[in-house]
Design a protein around this nucleic acid. Structure first.
Lengths: 196, 196
DNA sequence: TCCATTCTTGTCATCTTTGAAAAGAATGGG
DNA sequence: CCCATTCTTTTCAAAGATGACAAGAATGGA
């Protein structure tokens, strides 16, 4: 054999630095050199471990999406989401309440407009959430049918995402009626729709 | 005197080309040269009329925000928004249904995270919308108080923005219950809140 | 010890973008 | 016709970022 591999740790270290740079200066202004400075390595080592810039961006996206999915999966596995209400809570207070993730996702969002690969990764991530919502709605027999449940799930996601976006750039005003309660209103609308 | 000024037309021409480039390739990848190619002028002329790159971005933002505000102002002036329902319609089907604007706003959004000037311009633009909503809710005596109306207005904005964002990157599924109807559910929730 | 593998350093050439400025052409009035 | 103002062309230098690679050092086992 040969020298022990430290590739994984280095990658993690570099991506963490990359993320810090992106949050501080934005994706467009983050260069390989700045990432290198951030983690205290020469640029050539950064290249050695994460490849070229595009490849580095890909890895960051991977990281973000895995983190998002892990959040939801963990909550589900730990039995913290036994009801629809729990699930919505999780989405509003965990998934869309992680400032770091929101910040980076915001950066990635516009890349998705032109990059099909990123777009499908984001689509996967978010459909994981809507799927979970629909499953729970179905279990609790809310709404007349699948299509309506999917629409409400989409609306809940939009509401949470929109609110996170406004919060992200500091445009959100303090709440007295929480969005969480308004989310319930959407569910209520769906529930009554089944009787109309 | 001297030669007639064509500054305004040139600026408009250049900004339109800039916008086209941004929509096609994204803000980060849009260079002065590409804008110049787009409008068929040498780069030096672009610089002559819109200054350096930062200045050009500022002008684009100005343009976007003026356009957004003009849309709402026009609808109000033409008496197309006499009811709350009309106003919500306008917001959902006009303000957040302009693909071009959404696309560019999406590009600008992440700049706002670090640029206070852009942020306050966006804040102005969106508070114009929430203000209009609150005024109309007040006129129709919906909801118990100002705070609640503001929250619902904010939620409506978040919903519309979130939905526009998902649509923008092509992640939105077809609707059977429209977001518009779900928006009504939010209003309904507010209306009943006054009696609870 | 020797070797294959893995990591690290340092340097180079190239490409792109930008900012700047000189010099010339067009235009409308005096 | 002349001149001030405005627009246009052309060219240059500097900065920044990237990709590539050669050469060396560290490591763990045979």
């Amino acid at each position: 054999m040969a020298r022990a591999k430290i590739e994984d740790e280095r990658k993690e270290q570099i991506l963490a630095g990359f993320e810090a740079c992106v949050i501080r200066n934005g994706l467009a202004k983050t260069t390989l050199q700045k990432v290198a400075d951030e983690v205290g390595l020469p640029r050539s080592l950064v290249r050695y471990f994460v490849g070229n810039r595009d490849s580095m961006v890909d890895l960051l996206i991977e990281r973000m999406i895995e983190r998002g999915e892990a959040t939801l999966a963990t909550a589900e596995r730990d039995g913290e989401v036994s009801t629809l209400s729990d699930l919505i809570d999780t989405i509003f207070t965990v998934t869309f309440d992680d400032e770091t993730s929101n910040n980076v996702v915001g950066e990635l969002w516009y890349l998705a407009q032109r990059d099909g690969a990123i777009r499908s990764r984001l689509a996967d991530m978010y459909s994981r959430i809507t799927d979970a919502l629909v499953v729970q709605m179905t279990a609790e027999e809310i709404g007349p049918g699948l299509a309506e449940r999917e629409d409400v799930a989409q609306a809940l996601l939009s509401l949470a995402y929109g609110e996170a976006s406004f919060t992200d750039i500091g445009l959100k005003k303090p709440n007295s009626i929480s969005s969480r309660r308004l989310a319930d209103a959407l569910i209520y609308e769906l529930a009554t729709a089944s009787k109309t």
